[in-house]
């Protein structure tokens, strides 16, 4: 018994645990898409601008798009998204939590954005899937 104990002791002594791989959480964006109210298909519009306010970041400008991705500030807990086009003048304000996350000591720190909630919007019809990764907003018109 004493010998068995010492042998297993040595075997376990040379074992090691692997570090998990670095992960890209893919949740540092909000996806916005435009949908047709008639058949719920993607709707391409010409936007004058899509931007985030305070601090200002212009996401899209003078382009035909059916959707876009909004980056999230890691040092804020809310985002005001403003969409300006000939057919659409809307703003959407969301609240969220941003927390750093370290997967492995070999990885960079990632930010986890969650606990999204709608504070207000001027859009007439909007569908929110804020539990998805990334969160999705559909503007229907």
């Amino acid at each position: 018994m004493r010998t068995l104990c010492l042998v297993i002791f040595c075997i376990l002594g040379v074992s090691c645990l692997d570090q998990p791989p670095c992960l890209d959480s893919q949740n540092n964006r909000i996806e916005i898409s435009f949908k047709s109210i008639d058949d719920n298909t993607d709707k391409t519009i010409t936007v004058d601008s899509v931007y985030v306010s305070n601090p200002l970041f212009i996401v899209e400008k003078n382009i035909d798009i059916a959707g876009t991705e909004i980056p999230l500030y890691p040092d804020m807990n809310e985002v005001l998204i403003i969409i300006e086009s000939a057919s659409l003048q809307d703003s959407i304000k969301l609240q969220y939590e941003a927390r750093p996350k370290l997967y492995s000591r070999e990885c960079d720190v990632e930010m986890i954005f969650n606990e999204f909630s709608l504070e207000y919007t001027t859009a007439d019809s909007i569908r929110l899937n804020l539990e998805l990764i990334p969160p999705q907003i559909e503007i229907v018109f």
């Binding site: 970041f57 980056p71 927390r99 720190v109 990632e110």
Partner: peptide, 19 residues
Amino acid sequence: RIDYDYSDSDLGTFSGMTA
């Protein structure tokens, strides 16, 4: 405690972040 820098491809680098 963690002190870190965070980089976003669009928003740039945020230095001196702490939690």
